[in-house]
Amino acid sequence: MSEIEYHAVAKTDEIMEEDVKGVFVGDEEIAVYNVEGEYYATHGICTHENVGLADGFVEGDLIECPLHSACFEIKTGKAVNPPAEIDLKTYPVKVEGDTIYVGIEK
């Protein structure tokens, strides 16, 4: 079993509700979301082409890619409409105080 290491990536007030922020943990680009006050994280790059989802648009619990409008479920990473067909990777998130931590496999 691989171990998960949590990394501080942002302060809670940096990401408004229905918003997304792009962060890096090492070389890994991650998108962190606020859906109704809960924080989630997915891989930061659309699975269709090489585009950052942090420039995308959050609606409800979906993130829409800024380039060709593919949508993914923020909580599960599931690709819900074309052109994307591959699901997004998701990461565990925890909040301590006002800091958001994203868990990455070591």
Binding site: D55, G56, F57, E59, E64, P66, L67
Partner: peptide, 10 residues
């Protein structure tokens, strides 16, 4: 500025 455009679309 794709983000503001998206909101504009909504």
């Amino acid at each position: 500025n794709p983000r503001d455009l998206r909101v504009g679309k909504r």
